[in-house]
Amino acid sequence: MSALVAQRAGVFATTPRAAATVALPDARPSGVRLGLGRPVPFAAAVGVTLLLVLWTAGSAIGFIDPRVLSAPWTVVTTGAELVADGRLGEHLTVSLTRAALGLVTGTAAGVVLALVAGLSRVGDAVLDGPIQVKRAIPSLALLPLLILWFGIGEEMKVITIALGVFVPVYLHTHNGLRAIDSRYVELAETVRLSRWQFVARVVLPGALPGFLLGLRFAVTGSMLALVVVEQVNATAGIGYMMELARTYGQTEIILVGLVVYGVLGYSADLAVRLLQRRTLAWRRTLEG
């Protein structure tokens, strides 16, 4: 789209300059423009800013009842207080630890399973079926069973997050792996790579784009699972802080929790995208 716009701009770039010297009217052939036109500056921030402005204005003129939705400045001061007395940091540490543990174990499991299923017919026959069945069952539906098996402690929470994480990692890594061009397998045979060299030099880098896509889904999935497990019998964590606030009707603390979840999810996704750009530099030259 933007390429089309740029191309049009490029094609006509000489016309106005010529018009300036020779003083001709800018007579281009008229045509219907079906493209989207010039990009909006700061497009990503526009909608969010508009919402913030509406929220602030609504709170300031009393249109929004603070019992329903606290004013933005209340959320900011509450957030500052929670940071100052160390409560937010404490809950955040607990939440982050859970999410990170779940993400790491889930990702590792997803990659290992994808490699086993992707590189051997037997592995595929044994593993792929059960994983597809698991995929059909929402992770959170397993929660009652997981609580019975692992109790209501940290173990259950991390396992629930890992279960939500491994499926997209497995799926996309497996898919990326199987999509590796068979010509590269031939090449590997002619230069006599060992199986391990083949995995390290061809399979893993070839499956990396798929893996990173899976990782992005996994990060979002880990946040979702985190929210749910933190509201089940937790005694610490952002979710617990919000649950507690609900019982006292403190919407401003709930909002602080939401903001923290939002920032966490967004920065985790940003981190993965950055990783994508760094590790897929060879592909970026194609994408420009």
Binding site: Y184, L187, A188, R192, P205
Partner: peptide, 16 residues
Amino acid sequence: SRLLPWARVLDNVVLG
């Protein structure tokens, strides 16, 4: 040419 697109030129030459 069947070069691995994710490996730099020299890494492709010394592959294996």
